Simulated scan of single mutants.
Amino acid sequence: MNDIMKITTYTPDYNGSTAIVYAETKELSQHLNQTQLDRVRGLGEKFEEKWLEVQAGTDTAWVYKIGKSVDADARAEKMRQAGNTLVLKANAAYLDRIAILGAHVPHVAEGAILGNYQFLRYFSDSHKRKNSMAQLFVSKEDEQTLAPIATATMGALFARELVNTPVIDLTATDLANQAKEASKRHGFSIEVLEKKQIESLKMGGLLAVNYGSPEPPVFIIMEHKPKNATNEKPLVLVGKGVVYDTGGLSLKPSNYMDDMKSDMGGAAAVIGAISAAAEANLPVHIIGLVPATDNRPGGNAVTPGDVITISDGTSVEVMNTDAEGRLILSDALVYAK
């Protein structure tokens, strides 16, 4: 996975470009010179809810004026979007660092971290394509607030990496191995059920979807159970792990298959979420369940009209094999009970 941008404490001797979020121009006086302040006074109103670039000698400064009042969630999202825009500007200028100051710094930084993500695994010239931005500087107070957000972005970026990886390198077994590696990095427990174990649990939905595949299915069970958990019953996250979906015998048109490597996005989200929760040592008991397979039309593939039985004994008539998600998730939901 790509390196996540480093978060460093801002100090007065910082040397580099800055980005400042403000509501009143007077808030900028400690960061900008008089010429820059005059430029902000002259243009600031035109750049409400936008970044205005003002030069600071050899370094660049961007300022962002907060507009009308909105609720907390909407403001947080606006600042994430501003952070994404900021990191695009910084990379375009080939900067490797920027200090984010003023208001709403954690959410601006979150947007910058997420916006700096790249998937370069298959490029022979990835070193040339790699973004220049590598480091964010924030105040000590904001650094403390940003710590859990940075951990959450780690989980999100890990999920993106899984979603972007094609099935040739991410079979169901590969997905399980990725989850195992994550458990070692972040400290959660994991058990991976192989095909024989899945058969013993009579997970007919998962098995049926897998009939047409040369690759075996897996059922991934992850658990974060800290001693100080505040919940008596675990929070159970269930994610669809169809690592590639052709539609099975109800074959998708070819142009609808282009992005079907991402049909395991639910699984990626669950693996990323439990990785972040364990890394942050959240006081919450969490279980993550991922039924994983691909959905192909080969071999003894399930056919429209087949009747299968899922693990709680419920019989299901399959009328369209491209409705595979509900079949594998039904077994996972039964297991969750």
Rank of each mutant, 00 (worst) to 15 (best):
A23G: 10
D38F: 13
D38G: 14
R41Y: 12
G44N: 07
K46M: 03
W51A: 09
V63A: 08
K65A: 04
K65L: 05
G67T: 07
S69W: 11
D71T: 06
A74H: 11
A76R: 13
R80L: 06
G83W: 02
Y94K: 15
R97S: 15
A112N: 04
G115T: 11
D125W: 00
S126L: 06
N131M: 09
L136S: 07
E143W: 05
T153D: 01
L162A: 05
L162T: 08
L170S: 03
A176E: 02
A176D: 06
Q178L: 00
K180W: 02
I190M: 02
E199F: 07
S200N: 14
M203D: 04
L207P: 08
V209N: 05
H224D: 05
H224G: 01
K227H: 05
E232T: 13
L235D: 02
G239N: 00
G239E: 01
G241E: 04
S250N: 14
Y256L: 14
G266H: 06
I271A: 05
A276D: 03
A277D: 00
N281D: 08
L282P: 03
P283V: 06
V284D: 00
I286N: 04
V290P: 07
G298N: 05
A301L: 03
T303M: 09
T303A: 12
I310W: 06
M319S: 14
M319Y: 13
T321W: 06
A323M: 10
I328R: 10
D331V: 04
A332C: 09
